[in-house]
């Protein structure tokens, strides 16, 4: 490691605010994009299987009443 101590690492030679602002905001944005993309996929899959299950039940009901 280039830095002598953790305190020195976090201070970034006096530029800590700017360096950690950059890395923090970037990671948050990337994580949000990954999470949201995954959430959208799962959400739609759930909706779709619920819809298909409903259609199936409806079909079974109609077959019973006929």
């Amino acid at each position: 490691m280039y830095f002598q101590s953790w305190a020195e690492f976090w201070a970034m030679g006096g530029y800590g605010l700017f360096v950690w602002l950059s890395f923090g905001s970037s990671y948050i944005m990337l994580a949000a994009l990954v999470w949201y993309s995954q959430y959208q996929h799962k959400q739609f899959k759930r909706q779709l299987s619920a819809k298909l299950a409903r259609e199936k039940r409806l079909q079974q009901y109609q077959e019973q009443t006929d």
Binding site: M1, Y2, F9, M12, G13, V19, S22
Partner: peptide, 21 residues
């Protein structure tokens, strides 16, 4: 890039933002 490279001779440690920018 953050911990194992030397600082820039002009910009000090602020240049480490390059690794995302």
């Amino acid at each position: 890039g953050l911990a194992f490279t030397p600082p820039d001779y002009q910009q000090g440690d602020s240049y480490r933002i390059i690794h995302l920018h």
